[in-house]
Write a protein that binds this DNA or RNA. Structure first.
Length: 115
DNA sequence: CCACTGACGAGTG
DNA sequence: GCACTCGCCAGTG
């Protein structure tokens, strides 16, 4: 093991993963929102970087994170995982249109839990 | 150390 | 809705 971390000092990645794990099934959140909830306002890019570092089989529901426009960024960059993301979302009941977009208005994760 | 890239966001035209 | 700019930060060469 490389280095031991100081107690209470979690890495930014750990906090990001912790937030993503809290996104309810059938709902989606955005990179910016996750960053903010993780205590990293303005660092949405780092959220994307953290998710990109995830491996298959991780307990982090990364497919529930889309960009601020409601688009599947993964599909936008032509990544094959975009198909997986779309499939998983639809399977959870989140409709994805032909432009790889989801309605944040209806399915965006709101802490208020309004329906 | 510098330049470039990338699962992003907000602002402007 | 689209194109462009700037801000942010980690990783790579």
């Amino acid at each position: 093991m490389p280095q031991r971390r100081s107690p209470g000092a979690e890495s930014a990645y750990d906090r990001i993963y912790a937030v993503v794990r809290r996104i309810p099934r059938g709902r989606v959140s955005t990179y910016g929102a996750v960053a903010r909830l993780a205590g990293l306002p303005g660092r949405a890019r780092q959220v994307g970087y953290a998710l990109a570092a995830l491996r298959d089989g991780s307990s982090v529901p990364w497919h529930r994170v889309v960009n601020a426009q409601g688009r599947l960024s993964l599909a936008r960059v032509g990544s094959p995982s975009g198909i997986t993301q779309r499939l998983r979302l639809v399977r959870e009941g989140v409709p994805v249109d032909g432009g790889d977009r989801v309605s944040l208005t209806s399915f965006g994760w709101k802490l208020r839990g309004r329906t």
